[in-house]
């Protein structure tokens, strides 16, 4: 069992559903991030899924309780570290990467898989950070249809400290900017999966989490589940899209709470 101090709270889970990402900076052993970054600097070819064999210290990151806490919270105790993982290196002078969703575009209320992006080295704005668009994870968007978008209001560059792990919803829109620095930007992408559907919350859930009333003054700033799921609007879309988002979020919440996916949808 993992110490509950490392588990996500109700508000953090609700925020993940709404915004599609959650950042963690685990207290890793001194020098570990630097050793991993230095090792990656020297790689001459990309080992693909074998990156964890080439750089076995990466397992220390995955096994840190702060990382396990998020995985248990969103996927259950028996989560799976998928065999697919990838080292994304943006060397100096590399260009930007346009908006895309990974895989095909199939919107799903189930949170059964998501990504963990580990950055062993500080990422500054000129190093080609990953850029995400919070709130886009429920939008089916073929890459070609996004070709005319460039910068989007509310986009967030993951300018982070070395050692940060960004957990991102699998369908979150993302890209990168160009690397105009003289430093390699490293990111290791991990994929995590659920092996069993929840029958109960697996995060640090308090039953009264849903007792909060709708707060028409604070809206999602009230930071309780009901108001986060109801009012959160990171893209600042207008009414009809916002209502659809709200409906999908509650379905996702109920699914994580232990309802079967079909029931979570039908009870809407």
């Amino acid at each position: 069992m993992i110490d509950r101090v490392f588990l996500m709270t109700d508000a953090e889970v609700a925020n993940f559903i709404v915004h599609g990402y959650h950042l963690v900076q685990p207290d890793l052993p001194e020098g570990l991030n630097e050793r991993i970054a230095t090792r990656l600097d020297t790689l001459e070819s990309n080992p693909g899924d074998a990156i964890t064999e080439t750089v076995p210290e990466l397992w220390q990151v995955l096994e840190h309780p702060a990382i396990r806490g998020v995985l248990v919270s969103l996927l259950g105790e028996d989560y799976q570290v998928n065999a697919h993982r990838h080292w994304h290196c943006k060397p100096p002078g590399s260009g930007y990467m346009h908006w895309h969703q990974d895989s095909t575009n199939n919107r799903d209320i189930r949170i059964n898989r998501f990504l963990g992006l580990y950055y062993p080295r500080d990422v500054t704005a000129d190093m080609g950070p990953t850029i995400i668009v919070p709130g886009t994870q429920f939008r089916n968007a073929p890459t070609d249809r996004m070709a005319t978008y460039t910068n989007i209001r509310g986009q967030i560059p993951l300018v982070v400290k070395g050692g940060t792990v960004a957990f991102t919803h699998y369908d979150l829109w993302h890209g990168t900017s160009a690397n105009r620095s003289d430093v390699k930007r490293h990111m290791i992408k991990f994929l995590f999966s659920r092996t069993h559907e929840n029958v109960a919350p697996t995060w640090y859930h308090t039953p009264e989490a849903l007792d909060g009333a709708i707060d028409w003054n604070q809206h999602d700033r009230a930071q309780d589940v009901r108001n986060i799921l109801t009012f959160g609007n990171p893209l600042r879309v207008s009414q009809s899209d916002h209502y659809k988002e709200r409906s999908i979020r509650w379905q996702a919440w109920r699914y994580l709470m232990g309802e079967k996916a079909t029931e979570a949808v039908e009870s809407e």
Binding site: N105, R107, F138, R139, N140, A141, P142, R145, M146, Y149, I152, L235, V237, D241, K244, E245, S247, I248
Partner: peptide, 8 residues
């Protein structure tokens, strides 16, 4: 579509 979301 009245229930799904796609591109902006």
């Amino acid at each position: 579509d009245d229930t799904d979301l796609d591109v902006i």
